[in-house]
Amino acid sequence: MQHTSTQDTFVGLFVASGIVGLFFLALQVSNLSSFTEHDSYTVTARFENSGGLKVKSPVSSAGVKIGKVSAISFDPKTYESVVQLSIDKQYNTLPDDTTASVFTAGLLGEQYVNLEAGGSDEYLKDGGKIEITQSAIILEKALGQFLFKSAEEKK
């Protein structure tokens, strides 16, 4: 009987360590702990150019992540990029004249949407629209303009 009970202990230890491994992967390695699916509300922002923004890109305000990009589509009538931002419900006091801009984290980092609060008394609601937007800065475009300008000055 001694043999079977040590065997049971080993099986128990094995299963427990496997489950600990899974939990470790879920909590320590992945983003499950930092951003769980809270209740969120969706607002739409239209950009002239959303650059390299992707679904799941972060939405932050004052440097703090408050939501993520839930969908990006192209409007064939106005030729704009329509970006849906799903923002955590606990941050429901953003004024309705908030500015949305596409920024890049660092020189080569990923792109994110930055929200800068305005001064209005009305808050953004679910399904609301952000009217004031600023497009992504396209590095090639900026470089091109700069080179063009310096060539012009040399003449």
Partner: peptide, 15 residues
């Protein structure tokens, strides 16, 4: 049953 536990252990220990 063992395979997913072993794979999770492998990844966790590897990390």
């Amino acid at each position: 049953l063992s395979m997913p536990l072993l794979a999770a252990l492998f990844s966790a220990v590897g990390i």
